[in-house]
Design a protein around this nucleic acid. Sequence first.
DNA 1: TTGTAGGCGTTATCAT
DNA 2: ATGATAACGCCTACAA
Lengths: 332, 332
Amino acid sequence: MATIYEVSRLAGVSLATVSRVINNTAPVREATRVKVEAAMNELGYRPNSVAQSLASNRSNSIGILVSELSGPFYGELLSRIEAEFRAVGKHVIIAAGHSDAEMERESIEFLRSRNCDALILHVESVSDNYLRGLADGGCAFVLINRYVRAIAERCITLDNRHGGYLATRHMLQLGHREIAYVSGPMWKNDAKERYAGHLEALAEFGVSENKALFFEGDFQETGGVRALQHFLAADASFSALVCANDEMASGAITAAHDIPLELPDQLSVIGFDNVNFSHYTYPKLTTIDYPIAEIGQMAARWVLKNVYSQTTTELKAIFEPRVIERDSTQKI
Amino acid sequence: MATIYEVSRLAGVSLATVSRVINNTAPVREATRVKVEAAMNELGYRPNSVAQSLASNRSNSIGILVSELSGPFYGELLSRIEAEFRAVGKHVIIAAGHSDAEMERESIEFLRSRNCDALILHVESVSDNYLRGLADGGCAFVLINRYVRAIAERCITLDNRHGGYLATRHMLQLGHREIAYVSGPMWKNDAKERYAGHLEALAEFGVSENKALFFEGDFQETGGVRALQHFLAADASFSALVCANDEMASGAITAAHDIPLELPDQLSVIGFDNVNFSHYTYPKLTTIDYPIAEIGQMAARWVLKNVYSQTTTELKAIFEPRVIERDSTQKI
DNA sequence: TTGTAGGCGTTATCAT
DNA sequence: ATGATAACGCCTACAA
């Protein structure tokens, strides 16, 4: 690889001048600029970004930490973030935290040691305190899908509680009163909030909570299967099933087919997230839209604005979920 | 951030010694090692990886280029690759090529300028020649899901042709003779090969090719929908539908439900890839397994061996597909 | 076993 | 507008 020095020699200028035309960080006479550019082309010169980073203390790379790299949810998130940064010549370095506090912490250290200019974090196990400490330590990061009051200005979230409310209200408005609920792991914040929204809707319609109609799943497909089996085995009476995410809803639908149970005639099912396989189910899944791509875009813009001082469209911190009505729910 | 220099001063040794304990690249007396480590801890020292890269000409980062970041297929691939490298302290820089030659080329340049030690490429638009040139230019890379004879030793592939053969043979063995085929874009190599396998199976069973039962889709869900509608509108007679990937199979199944068509009684459907939503469909999709995670792992090991000189398990260049029989196919 | 000193390829601060 | 020249933080012969 040619270096800036060789370019400068070929162009007959100093290497400082070459640097100037690369970054146009200072005026350069048109004639010299042309000479330099010609030299760069001739040598096929590409600036060494590592050296640039060392000298400028900027790496032009952004670290992304998500729980998993697979799965429809994170795929869309990453996709949007990458596109957004790529458009401005920046790179993403990606790591997975696997919902484990130790791995999350270690991943963050990992990304920091790579001199990332900023981090976009989707973490669920690390403590609020840790995050506050990170912020105090001068680490530039933005938090996705989690709200921590002390660093509210760095949080981009979905109103999970309202989403949970909408899902259950949707069932209630269809006339259902016996509504079973399949939650995610209750130690996860979004699971807790979605459930709170569920209770809120029930209260609003004067339906009292029935512990027998609650099941704590794992946000996985199998959790949905087990949930349905559990309710059936317990001989619970319910006409609607609210699932805290689409994976579990899919599992429940699969299990229902195996009973068999006619959907949505004998049971209405609603999911949460609107991941892209949600319309592969049969019947097509009614769900709550989680605008994950937009949230990813917003996180990227937060970084562009706060770290790279670029002017962008206005930032938005809270996104609103909404019902996507398809075929898996029906009036009773 | 503390530098190696500060550590050396605090420990009362030269900075070369500190470097040695960091990389243990030369013997260091136990006593000094302890002193240095104590100093590092006290200062919370973390080596600056950018400076390390510049000095050592190693970035400890691997560039990954895939067509898309979203979608079940690439998610699993990335997930496995990241895990494999992460375990040995290396990180991945990820870019998307969007099946476009220009973007693929640019992405490769992008990753190279980041001084990646190696690239793992899943490209479909860039020419064989370009890749050969890249290899000649001394770029360390391994190619996934594509075979280029001139650089065969860098290719890790699935036997797509055999997979196509297995899918259609499965239908033939179930007694089907009128088999419609939904292909991917024929300019893509895997689509072409899967189709070749299809023809091979037909020939083996003495079934002649029927152009009316061929439809070129786009590897997307909508392609499957359009395919089924196309065949039906053309009044084609067929009892089985072979789709070149699971997305299109899902689309076809959805469309079949809308007709409605009883599955698998009135129509058997098989997909290809065995992506993780393939059992969300109803009936659960019979498909061809594409061991994408294993392929990702193998690519990572290729890099570990050929670039980082690590000893790993033996490398494997060609993976074999196999039929995953679920509920969407049935004897006629 | 340890220290010295010269690079790695840029950026950035001075002069000129 | 352009050119020297010091950083940037670390690695690595080469010496000691």
